[in-house]
Computed example of a mutant assay.
Amino acid sequence: MEGISFEGIGTQWEISSPLPLAPSLTERILARVEKFDADWSRFRGDSLVSAMARTPGRYDFPDEAGQLGKLYRTLYRISAGTMTPLIGASLERLGYDAAYSLRPAGSPLPAPAWDDVLDWNGTSITTSAPVVLDIGAAGKGLLVDLLAAELEAAGVDAFVIDGSGDLLARGPSAIPVALEHPYNPDQAIGVVRLAGRALCASAANRRAWGDGLHHVLDGTTGRPVQTAVATWALAETAVLADALATALFFVPGAQLQESFDFSWLTVYSDGSAGYSEEFEGTLFT
């Protein structure tokens, strides 16, 4: 397999394909990553999201904002507000800020209620107060899908995109993917053979700091979730798999399946696991 690797939106990426990617396609991919970061990052002062955090008002985002807003609104409703894109200020309060201080600046801060401050209508986002939007629960998966669209538009029909563990595979061959042990990254608890779908994971041991602090926060309390420690979701698109991997920290998988077509695995803090009947993976005993 041929491939390219690069850093984007603060993490490492690899794209593999049977044939080398044309230089012009590589340039378009890197430009797409930079544009996405310039629109959605809360870690850079020149982004649209940072402008929104400073000044309320109407902001026009690119086309992908439409599907992202609908997905977040649905998950906000299903989770009773525990999963929200308005969690940015809560993360900053606990130290996950633009400077990566990793030092809490006070007690946990609940996220504002959606309807109090936010009107997300297609690609237009209007705020009535300064808000720190954070799309981290679905953003990396969304970018995976956008890069896949660039590849497919260029006639590349077999590839694997790996955005630091958020995976999308296209083509005839299945690839084995290890499911990382939530307490030991050198071990695996199982394996999935991935073909034609996306696999995304979320874990409390990733982006963790301090005493029990990690990046998956309950929007109603501003506190890190303690019930689950690792989740995996498989879906047709990476944005859906990514968002649902986070949603599994808040909502049982069976309940999410009432609204979404996906399969899932959740490892809980007591060491037990739950998974959907059609989960494609094999767990080690």
Score class of each variant (00 low, 15 high):
Arg58Gly: 14
Met1Leu: 13
Thr126Val: 11
Leu143Trp: 11
Asp166His: 04
Glu180Val: 00
Ala273Gln: 09
Gly163Gln: 08
Leu94His: 08
Gly274His: 00
Leu151Ser: 07
Tyr72Val: 05
Ala188Ile: 00
Ala254Thr: 12
Glu278Asp: 15
Ser128Ala: 13
Ala31His: 12
Leu265Glu: 00
Val49Met: 11
Ser101Met: 06
Leu133Ser: 01
Leu234Ser: 14
Thr126Gln: 13
Ala113Pro: 01
Ala149Cys: 08
Leu91Gln: 08
Arg77Ile: 10
Ala99Gln: 14
Arg42Gly: 02
Gly212Ala: 03
Glu277Met: 08
Leu143Thr: 04
Arg103Leu: 09
Trp40Asn: 04
Leu91Trp: 01
Asp116Val: 06
Gly81Arg: 06
Leu265Cys: 05
Glu277Ile: 13
Pro62Asn: 14
Asp186Pro: 02
Arg42His: 09
Tyr72Asp: 06
Trp13Lys: 02
Leu240Ala: 11
Val216Trp: 06
Glu14Lys: 15
Val117Phe: 03
Arg28Phe: 07
Ser90Gly: 07
Pro224Lys: 06
Gly136Ala: 02
Pro104Glu: 08
Asn205Trp: 14
Asn121Phe: 07
Thr82Glu: 15
Glu27Ser: 13
Ala158Trp: 03
Ala233Glu: 10
Ala169Arg: 15
Ser41Lys: 02
Pro108Val: 01
Gly271Asp: 10
Ala198His: 05
Ser269Cys: 11
Glu27Gln: 14
Ser24Leu: 09
Gly106Ser: 13
Ala174Trp: 01
Val117His: 08
Ala203Val: 07
Leu19Thr: 15
Leu168Ile: 07
Pro62Thr: 14
Glu277Tyr: 11
Trp232Gly: 10
Pro108Leu: 00
Ser50Pro: 03
Ala273Trp: 00
Ser164Met: 01
Arg223Gly: 13
Leu143Phe: 10
Arg77Lys: 11
Gly163Ser: 12
Leu25Ser: 04
Thr237Asn: 05
Gly10Ala: 04
Gly271Met: 02
Phe284Tyr: 14
Leu265Ser: 05
Trp40His: 12
